[in-house]
Amino acid sequence: MNIAVCVKQIPDPAALYELDSENHWVIRPNDQVLDDTDRFGIEIGLQLAEESEGTVTLFSMGPSGSLQGIRQALAMGADKAVLIDDEILKGSDALTTAQILSAAIAKEGFDLVVAGMESTDGYTGTVPQMMSEILDVPCLSFARNVEVEDGNVTIERQTASGYEVVSAKLPALLAVTAGVVEPRYPTFKGIMQAKSKPVDTLTASDLGVEPHIGQTISSVTDVEARASGTVIEDEGEAYLKIVETLEQAKVI
């Protein structure tokens, strides 16, 4: 099975994100890390590839920088990576991102596309659904417990009140939630091999996709922070303060 996994390099989430004051884009350092949410998609992709003697190809759009995040993903065991890095794609919206990724995936050929439900920095949570429409495949979103058998893929899809079992024919797209599997740690061997795995780089014009502009950011302002209240150290009687607060809120 030919498995395409969409992964994103993002600025280290432990550091505070800064926005460019002119165009409001997140400032991306040269060294970016693999988005943690994507580790779950990679793990599922690797497991399915192992079962079917398939391959896992990573697809990523954005400034390549030092490729640190992509190497982290390759070190987990993916076979190769296709990057789309193009100055004209800076500040792209979700739809342009989906069009670019879909074009690159379609060019390469696929049986299954795996993406995360939400990226840590963008979190529009709509890129996978847009890709499924463009590629004309079912979108199996909020997926956990994935099984592929006889050309069919079956998942459990989380819903507001529980889950449903959903089944579709391949080719299909899976959008996986975090926590569905335990992502593997790269081995030393994996890290060494990652350095020599193929990484192709494409531009928007290689894919024949033109970014469209349908929205413009007019302003970015700080949201007034919630005022913090009292913080007290528990010396054995702090629970009485809680009782008092519950009384004031009239819930007891």
Binding site: A94, L95, T124, V127, Q129, M130, C139, R157, A160, Q215
Partner: peptide, 23 residues
Amino acid sequence: AGNTDRDVAGRLAARLGKPLVAG
């Protein structure tokens, strides 16, 4: 923000070729 809301919104945006503002 429901799961199906998001799925339909994303597919519709791609189908119409229109931007979708989320959140």
